[in-house]
Design a protein around this nucleic acid. Structure first.
Lengths: 188, 188
DNA sequence: TTGGAAAACTAACAAGTGTTAGTTAGTTTT
DNA sequence: AAAACTAACTAACACTTGTTAGTTTTCCAA
C-alpha cells in the first residue's frame, strides 16, 4: 500500500463520516500523522480526492453495464445483472460510494458537468433495458424515465444502510432488489 | 411575508443549490440585500435554519403517518395513503426537502441525535404497515426492514428529479409509486 | 412631533481554509 | 563521492467563516 493510497483511503473515510466540505486537509493529515502541507507531495489537492473517486466509480459502473449489454439478451436478465453489478460496485467501497452518490455536487464546474454527462449516460443504459422489456411485451407500460429513477434510487440508497459485517451480503441484496423491482415491472 | 420568512426562504434556496456548508451567512445576506450581521436581528444563527427546517418537515411527516393510522385499516390502503402524504410533504418545498434528506448530518451532535430518533420512529411506522400487510396475508413474506428502506429510498429520491412545472404532479407521482411498490409487495 | 423599538449598519474578532514557498533529512541513482 | 529524488517539515499567505459589540437609521404609535 503506497502512501498515496493510504492518504486516499483515510480521506474517504473522513469524508463519508463528516462530509467532503467539512473535512479539512489538516484533518486528513493528522489522521495519517503528517502535516497538511506534506499531503501535497502525494496528491495535487483536495479536489483530486473527489475527482479520482467519482470518476473511478463511474468507470466501474460503466464497465458493469457494458458487460451486461454484451452478454445478455432479454430485459429481465439484463436488469438482474445490471442491478447485481451496481450493488457490487457500490458495496465494494462504501466511502467511495458516498462521495459518488452525494458529494459530486462539489466538483468544480467543468468536472461536475462531465460527471453529470456520464451519469446521465449510465442512467440511459438502464432506461433502455426497461424500454426493451416493454418492447418484448414482458414489462408493463410504465413511464421508463420514472421507473429508471425509482430503481436507481433504491440501488443508490443501499449505501446508506448496508453494513459489511451485517446479516445481508451484496449478492443477497441484489437478488432481493431484483425480485422486488421485477415484480413491479413484469406483467405477471 | 415577514422578513424572517424571506430570509429563511432565500437561505433554503441557496442551500439546496450549493449545499448547507457551502452557503455562508454573507451569501444569504447579499441575496436579501443586507449585511451578514443584520441577519442576526431575525434569526439566532446559521444552524437555526437547519434545525427549523429539518424538524418542521419531520413534524409534517409525523402528522401524515398519524393520520393514516387513524383513518385506514388495511395495509394496502395505509401504504397508499402514507406514500401520498410523504410525496405531498416533500414536493411542497423542495428546498426544505433537500435539507431534510441530505443536510441533517450537519446538525450539532444533540440535535442530530434527536433527529435520527424521530426519523427512525417514522421509519418504524412505515415498517409496521408492511408487517401488517404480511399478517393480513396480503403481502409476500419479504424482509420488512429491507422493504421499508427500499420504499423510503424511492420516495425520498423524488426530490432529486421532481420539477414543479414538469409533466408530473405530486398526486400522479404518488399514485405511480404506489402501484409500483404494491405490485412488488402484494401476492397477486 | 417625539419616544422607542425594530432593523439596518460598520468594524472587528478568533478561528479555520486550501495552498505555496523554502528547507531539511534520508535514500537512491549516477 | 556527487547528484538527484522522495517525503517530511515549518512558516506563512490571503481569504473566508460565524458571530458579537456598538452605533445609526427607519418607522410607527402615542
Amino acid at each position: 500500500m503506497t502512501r498515496r493510497q493510504e492518504i486516499m483511503g483515510t480521506a474517504l473515510g473522513l469524508m463519508r463520516k463528516k462530509g467532503y466540505l467539512n473535512t479539512s486537509m489538516r484533518d486528513i493529515a493528522s489522521s495519517v500523522n503528517m502535516e497538511a502541507a506534506s499531503l501535497y507531495n502525494h496528491i495535487k489537492g483536495k479536489e483530486e480526492i473527489l475527482i479520482d473517486t467519482c470518476f473511478g466509480l463511474a468507470e466501474t459502473l460503466e464497465m458493469g453495464i457494458k458487460e451486461v449489454n454484451d452478454i445478455y439478451f432479454n430485459a429481465a436478465e439484463k436488469l438482474a445483472m445490471a442491478i447485481h453489478n451496481h450493488i457490487q460496485a457500490l458495496t465494494q467501497d462504501l466511502n467511495a460510494s458516498h462521495l459518488f452518490v452525494h458529494e459530486w455536487r462539489h466538483l468544480s464546474d467543468d468536472k461536475r458537468a462531465q460527471f453529470i454527462q456520464r451519469r446521465d449516460l449510465y442512467e440511459k443504459e438502464f432506461r433502455d433495458i426497461v424500454i426493451l422489456g416493454f418492447e418484448e411485451g414482458e414489462f408493463k407500460d410504465v413511464d421508463p424515465k420514472f421507473a429508471t429513477l425509482t430503481i436507481l434510487a433504491s440501488l443508490n440508497w443501499v449505501g446508506e444502510w448496508y453494513r459489511p459485517q451485517g446479516d445481508m451480503e451484496p449478492k443477497e441484496i441484489a437478488q432481493k432488489l431484483t425480485q422486488f423491482i421485477l415484480s413491479g415491472l413484469q406483467k405477471n
